[in-house]
Design a protein around this nucleic acid. Structure first.
Lengths: 207, 207
DNA sequence: GTGAAACTGTGATTTAATTAACAATATTTC
DNA sequence: GAAATATTGTTAATTAAATCACAGTTTCAC
């Protein structure tokens, strides 16, 4: 059974708050507390947790450690998944340095670029390969997810190589909407759109 | 009347495709063509366009130039809005260099940081100010939108300063969910969550 | 140990977003 | 110029997501 997208997002967010709680020595947490940390309601939290089949000790709130583990069982792949960043510009570097070491089951293990000055350089312990070795490296390192941060004008071409190389999930940060094979999961994030959306709602609430 | 969030997002995306069309000399476009460029359906496109009250010459598709202008009337503020980037790390730099010059009605006109090595430096024509001058600079330059790319541990504090300084829209790239005053529009984007979501759906479709 | 209070879990309802269905209209074909 | 075709605009139906309402527990106060 596949969870709703929004629920998956929220679970990921809950988990991070929960890890934080653990560090602070908090062993139990109420639905309304978790809700407060994430701009949403206690009912929503309970519903999300219900989806993953976890039940608390009533009246004591959820056991933080247990809940983290249950969310892990849902979200994480048993053996972890390997990730590559395609395009080592400012954004690619930001993402790479940002991620490394943050999630044990989701490792960035390669970056790719066409620029000879970048190839073979190491950023936060991750080596940069030439883009034309994509298929080979994806194969040998068993990479299944790609984060695309290439310039707009090469986005389409690169995405085709990714699919061909056997990538199963793409997180697209370019402003070009991509088309991938139907068995490849695609999530797109467009900064211009996000900013224009904020601008629209700012404009509208001013009135 | 306020448009649905998703519609606003799609309109922003359509506009960019339309601008592209214009460059290529295409004067009219059918709903199904626009749909194809954005992983969605012709009906969805027509509904979105219906929302903004534009009607085409039937059977010829939408007039590209006119549609761009109508979308502009909806999304843009007449005088434009000024934007600041808070936190000049890798991500802040990426966003700044990326945006400058891209949208005429939405200008990044300042960045802020606490690091003395960054203060007074100019990136893509945008000057970096010390964070303690936030309120002053926001006032004098009439900045209404902030893009937050500061480290997680200072996120909450900085967001409070933003609200106090009179910011009306926040685009939060930190992994800390923020609480802002109810009249401030907040959009959050969390890379870890995005990546974990991709990983979840990759894992699930493998099975 | 009884009643009040504090939470959770979930069926029922509501709201938001998408999709289906099709009438209306313009264009082309013959 | 009538019939066939392609496309839009919109009402209605469907689906997905969020919220309400409340019964069921456990705990606490006395």
């Amino acid at each position: 059974m596949m969870l709703p997208e929004r629920t998956v997002e929220r679970l990921s967010e809950y988990r991070r708050s929960l890890l934080q709680c653990l560090e602070e020595g908090k062993t139990h947490i109420y639905s309304h507390e978790l809700a407060e940390l994430h701009h949403n309601t206690a009912v929503q939290v309970r519903r999300d947790i219900m989806f993953i089949g976890y039940t608390s000790m009533q009246r004591k709130g959820y056991d933080v450690r247990e809940l983290i583990s249950v969310i892990g069982d849902i979200l994480d792949s048993e053996k972890g998944l390997n990730v590559a960043v395609i395009g080592v510009g400012n954004l690619g570097r930001a993402i790479t340095t940002y991620f490394v070491g943050k999630r044990s089951r989701l490792n960035i293990i390669a970056t790719f670029d066409v620029d000879h000055n970048k190839i073979d350089r190491v950023i936060s312990g991750v080596k940069c390969y030439p883009l034309n070795r994509l298929k080979e490296v994806v194969g040998t390192h068993n990479i299944s997810i790609a984060i695309m941060t290439v310039p707009a004008d090469s986005a389409v071409e690169v995405s085709e190589h990714l699919v061909e190389a056997g990538i199963k999930g793409v997180l697209n940060f370019t402003t070009i909407p991509l088309n991938v094979a139907p068995d490849v999961y695609l999530d797109e994030f467009d900064m211009i759109t996000s900013l224009e959306k904020v601008a629209y709602f700012v404009k509208m609430t001013k009135k």
